[in-house]
């Protein structure tokens, strides 16, 4: 038996591609990356040039050199780190609470189509209000600290996650459900073995969107009233016409969003290995 198992795992090994150091994919990634970096660099150069020539006012547009010096300053005195940390914590906390609660609730609506029908119009109604309009109330209720920003980020992400999860669960493959029922499955088994795994890709796809909305919630909350965060930094700097600092805040936000998106991407690969099976395969056109 051991021998048999060993042989099987050997067979399985053969299916995997041998790891090489400079695979074609790696080369392709390196070349796209260098082009992308080149584009950014060229853009900054042109910007600096145009500002120095006086074609565009440095006062209204900022300049790469000025941004760079503000960046060094903010990094050195630690304020950039403090602000970024505050915003990231608010956005992630809100994102997690909103997305997880929303997804769970959306999935559980599958259990009772009657209850789902009852609450559906309310969900649609809430969804049709721009969530950001709640910001002033949320700040009134939860104060000017981090909690109110977390609540805002939660409210931005919750309904989106709920609707996506509910839609996905509702559309779970009928034939797979029939098969499960024929095999004698209970409603629980149907839920955990078909509905949840079937909905997972759609739910995680919303996580990608929601990570952005989490940041929106946090930053808008900081605009309205706060003493910390990238939103606070951008808002106060712009009221002093300090465009260079505004850009530092914006670029940091961009970087934060980028990293968080990448993390969600990694999580997705982890959770959905079966979706990855043919990722290397592309049609030649």
């Amino acid at each position: 038996m051991d021998e048999v198992l060993a042989r099987q795992s050997n067979d399985a090994e053969k299916i995997k591609r041998p790891a090489k150091f400079l695979t074609p994919q790696l080369k392709a990634t390196a070349s796209t990356l260098s082009i992308q970096l080149g584009m950014v660099f060229a853009f900054l150069l042109i910007w600096q040039f145009v500002v120095e020539r006086g074609w565009i006012s440095a006062f209204l547009a900022g300049s790469p050199a000025g941004i760079f010096s503000k960046l060094l300053e903010a990094v050195n005195n630690g304020s950039l780190w403090d602000n970024a940390k505050a915003t990231v914590i608010e956005a992630i906390a809100g994102f997690l609470i909103g997305s997880l609660l929303g997804s769970l609730l959306g999935l559980s609506l599958w259990y009772s189509s009657f209850f789902a029908r009852v609450v559906e119009p309310f969900i649609v109604a809430i969804n049709s209000v721009p969530k950001i309009a709640f910001a002033p109330i949320v700040i009134l209720w939860f104060g000017t600290g981090m909690v109110s920003k977390i609540m805002l980020a939660t409210s931005m992400t919750f309904i989106i996650a709920l609707i996506a999860a509910y839609e996905a669960a509702k559309n779970a493959d009928r034939d797979l459900q029939s098969l499960m029922l024929a095999l004698g499955s209970t409603k629980h088994q149907l839920f955990f073995k078909v509905v949840v795994p079937y909905s997972l890709p759609a739910i995680i796809a919303t996580f990608r969107i929601n990570i952005g909305f989490g940041l929106v919630g946090a930053v808008v909350g900081e605009f309205i009233s706060s003493s910390h965060g990238l939103g606070h930094m951008i808002f106060t700097a712009s009221s002093f016409y300090d465009l260079d600092t505004v850009w530092v805040g914006l670029f940091t936000l961009m970087l934060v969003g980028f990293i968080l998106y990448y993390v969600v991407d990694r999580v997705e690969r982890r959770l959905l290995p079966w979706k990855q099976a043919d990722s290397g395969q592309r049609f030649r056109v």
Partner: peptide
Amino acid sequence: AGFEHAYPKA
């Protein structure tokens, strides 16, 4: 044998 850990799409 050898496909026990493969996903159906393969």
